[in-house]
């Protein structure tokens, strides 16, 4: 009797075990099927899910693409320049999130002109909040020197903070790989991407500077800050990379500050004697046009800066800024 019960128990135990074994084998088989890779890894280390920067530009309005304002007080000239293009309301809508990309490349004091002037950043932040009703304004850059020191010493961190903007410093996981369609250099390259995923509009603000490698650093060169990785390798072909940056980034507006122009020893300068007062500030929806105008402030012709023509030919803007009928004004 007992023996029979034992046998029955054994049989049940065995069946249960066999069932589990069967399930295990099936699971292993299904997993193998799902994970099966019949080709092996690919040659190039293409990034998984490359990213693309969004287009932040606003619709064009004829004859309201570029403005040039003469004057020394940057707060006033920038106000005027933006007003001439239709006011900040044209660019930033109520409740939108804005990122401002100043040139914070170096840990150097504002007066040397190697970085964007803090009062200029502060004024644009103010405009975004008070006039346009922006929800949030970020100020961000990926500098060459230590980011925290750069934002501190350039005065931009403090000025932006006081105006209510939030400074975003780069972190490793903010960088994602991108490939520029039609690009030769920006292929599978990490860019400073994360801050630009949560914004609606992008404004670039750059000073006019002499640059040893490229001739001049203005609004287009300012986007160099978006490149991650060993970006200094691009100095081997600086004109192409600047033109490609102009193709990759589509900002809402750029502001080119030629109030004090760094005429020599750029891009770092180091002495006030490197600077010259030119009292000109440009606001433009077309950065190629802005930089084409700006190179004149350095005493250069458009043809002196090959990247301008390259960017023009690639369709990123026009070097013939006159065709945009820039609006001129002077403030005292």
């Amino acid at each position: 009797m007992n023996e029979q019960i034992d046998k029955e128990l054994d049989r049940r135990e065995f069946l249960a075990r066999a069932g589990k074994a069967g399930i295990s084998i099936a699971a292993a088989g299904i997993a193998s099927y799902l994970l099966y890779d019949s080709t092996g890894p690919a040659a190039s280390i293409e990034a998984q899910d490359p990213v693309t920067l969004p287009d932040f530009s606003v619709p064009q309005i004829p004859a309201q693409t570029m403005s040039v304002v003469k004057g020394y007080d940057r707060a006033k000239t920038v106000d005027k320049a933006i007003e001439l293009l239709g006011g900040i309301e044209r660019f930033v809508k109520l409740g939108e999130t804005v990122a401002i990309k100043p040139n914070v490349a170096f840990a150097s004091p504002p007066m040397l002109g190697a970085t964007t002037r803090p009062e200029l950043v502060a004024e644009v932040v103010r405009l975004c909040y008070s006039r346009a009703g922006a929800k949030q304004v970020y100020v961000t850059d990926n500098p060459i020197n230590d980011p925290a020191s750069c934002f501190a010493l350039s005065g931009i961190g403090k000025a932006a903070g006081q105006a209510g903007a939030k400074v975003i410093l780069p972190k490793d996981n903010f960088f994602k790989y991108t490939t520029l369609t039609g690009g030769k250099l920006i292929r599978n390259w990490p860019i400073f991407y994360e801050p630009f995923t949560k914004i609606d509009k992008l404004i670039g603000i750059a000073p006019v500077k002499h640059h040893h490698r490229s001739g001049a650093s203005m609004t287009m060169k300012n986007w160099y800050g978006l490149l991650g990785g060993r970006r200094n390798i691009f100095h081997q072909d600086i004109n192409t990379i600047i033109a490609e940056l102009a193709m990759m980034v589509k900002p809402t507006l750029v502001i080119l500050d030629g109030t004090q122009v760094m005429m020599t020893n750029g891009p770092t300068g180091g002495s006030i004697s490197d600077l010259r007062r030119v009292d000109t500030l440009i606001a433009s929806c077309d950065m190629v046009a802005a930089d084409s105008y700006g190179c004149g402030l350095l005493g250069l012709k458009v043809t002196d800066l090959p990247y301008l023509t390259k960017a023009h030919e690639a369709g990123a803007g026009t070097t013939d800024f006159q065709s945009l009928k820039p609006i001129l004004a002077t403030v005292s």
Partner: peptide
């Protein structure tokens, strides 16, 4: 390699034979 690459490189399918035989 499955854990690191999330793929089963095809020649390694032989391991499935050993796994199934071991389960049994």
């Amino acid at each position: 390699t499955i854990l690191t690459t999330h793929k089963l490189y095809w020649p390694l399918l032989w391991a499935l034979v050993v796994i199934c035989a071991t389960i049994i």
